[in-house]
Write a protein that binds this DNA or RNA. Structure first.
Lengths: 201, 201, 201, 201
DNA sequence: TATGAATGAGCATTCATTCAT
DNA sequence: CATGAATGAATGCTCATTCAT
């Protein structure tokens, strides 16, 4: 019976599910849809391969679920930019710096890029990405940029275009991780800010 | 056997080999290491699958050879920037615009990024990239940037850092190709130039 | 532990065991040896999958035990034909009609046929069937048929051959259940009786 | 190039395909949809497992194709009954005897029964069977039976019902193959004919 | 003792590589 | 030499069986 924990069971299940999604995020992000063997995901999640199928019907469903979750979370995170202190420029700079420095922050972006680049991703994932990533994020940031342009923080011009360029570059930079010298690191937040900076910045 | 064709044979062989490498570049760049089936490469090269193995021992060798060639050629192409007309700023802007607009120009960058991102890539390819891509390209551009900084075209600071940031972003943007709205395209060359632009630009 | 429950325990165990066998009969009959998942049998028996293994060492043992029991019970049921009222013809007709109409009556026959048809069936089960089903059933019915032939109810000829033909056809018809038109059903008992009917029937 | 045989190639391909279908018929018929491992079919067809996939997309497609072919061929064979000599009774008896004696004749019937019995066969196969097997065969034989009833060869009553009963039993008998004594064989054609025989037979 | 989560062996399928033609 | 058919190793997925709780 082991009924003591009807609710605990649900919690453990949910934790497990999330554990798999976390593992899948890393593996899919780094190795791509094909390169991500279910056995690797299982290993990363510290379970047997068979267990994955108690939570997700197939590799494809796991992938799509992951994309959906990542898209949602990323949208939410971007929305949080409005809670940061200071001017639009300072908000965006802080947001950018956080993403560049956070260690795990690269995985969602890598995943989204992998999914966008890879021709064989399932259609449903493609659609999700189409809806979420670009357009939605741009709209999310639009008020910030319009305000920023008004106060001279950001360069003039089509705000949507500016945002999508900035996001594209930010995402790409996070994803790329080109191996430089030991002395050379990813571009700094300040450098990226030049893309959008206006006269008052 | 006929002696006069001895040389012609070599040439035909060499042409064939290059034909395969060209095909492999496209297929690896678009589909990644895993998605690139040998049969697809053969088809793109208008050869039978079996022929590939007369020129390359394995998929892995083909990939490594390709990386090596692309790295060399890209370095050479970057070197050609010095033959472009005008100031350092104009040279770099022209170079950037060409890469962003030329259709085939994206393949080498995509390939290099695939190779850098994908963990499955054979170690030898990783090493090649480590040696060639980043460091070498940076050194290639160093004179241009130092000159540019002197004349105020480019921002002050560690030139190597500036170059590697610029290349990282350029490469990433080319690779990313994130599907934006129908109204939004990749960042323009002018936008990317803001990253390096100095007071005189 | 409590002594008075010693016996009750045995009974409960036995009931449990039979519950499993009943469930297994249905599931094996309908889905075949391969299609019958242990989890389905457990569900049908309203037990957990793990419990099955407290009563049967393996799926194979469960199957063999089931075959053994079904063969015995069917032989016993066939023996009951002598308790039916009327002439040999009427006895056999009533027996036939019951089997064709009773809903659960088809399972044992389906199971036996599955076991006979399927090559994967363990050898031990095959042997059991060889010993039990055909020969034993025929011998069971031999007195009825000899009597029937004497009184003209059944056709003349080798009685054993007549019986095995009839049983074969009856079993086959029950098992087959070929989906006919909405207007066409399984052959009726009267139709099957023609196979054995003699001049006096 | 090996172009000498554009046409021969097609023929060899077709032969190979049929070789697979023949092997699949045996294996599916005997072991059922689940029990039929692709490796067994390949072995029976004397090819490697991988080769099967050059001719059929999946096990399911192979199965469906097989069902389709078997249904067609069986319909054709049944149609040939009109070319047999003699009265309707003699035609049907000759047809029945042939099927009972032909060695390979059991496989198509076994296959159809497996497919009808097994709950997990793909829907497309179910539909094919629904269209082909029962109804179509009955209609095919309707003229023969109507003629037979007119001349007193066959019993009176709903001809369609009589046919479907006869076919059901014939099919079932062929399929069943219940292991009898060494002295007892399947019911003879004459015995089966009693099911349909009329006063003049 | 009962549960059902966990394991892992086994089968369907794909694709790099080989080799008969 | 060129072809593409054939092989088989590798991977996704299922399910009998085990075992921690």
């Amino acid at each position: 019976m082991t009924p003591q924990s009807e609710e605990q069971l649900m919690k453990r299940q949910e934790a497990r599910r999330q554990q798999i999604l976390d593992a899948a995020l890393k593996v899919f992000a780094v190795r791509g849809l094909h390169g991500a063997k279910m056995s690797l995901i299982a290993e990363e999640a510290k379970l047997s391969a068979g267990q994955l199928y108690r939570f997700f019907e197939s590799k494809e469903e796991l992938f799509i679920t992951l994309i959906r979750q990542v898209a949602k979370e990323t949208a939410r995170e971007i929305g949080n930019i409005y809670n940061l202190p200071g001017s639009p420029y300072r908000k965006l700079r802080a947001f950018t710096a956080t993403i560049l420095e956070e260690d795990g922050a690269q995985y969602p972006f890598k995943l989204i890029q992998q999914a966008n680049t890879d021709e064989q991703v399932p259609d449903e994932a493609k659609q999700l990405l189409g809806q979420f990533s670009a357009k939605r994020f741009v709209e999310e940031l639009l008020p910030l940029f319009e305000e920023g342009q008004r106060v001279g923080d950001f360069a003039q011009g089509d705000a949507r275009e500016l945002i999508s360029a900035f996001l594209t570059i930010l995402s790409a930079v996070i994803t790329l991780n080109m191996p430089l010298d030991d002395d050379h690191r990813l571009p700094s937040a300040d450098l990226l800010m030049r893309i959008v900076a206006g006269p008052g910045a």
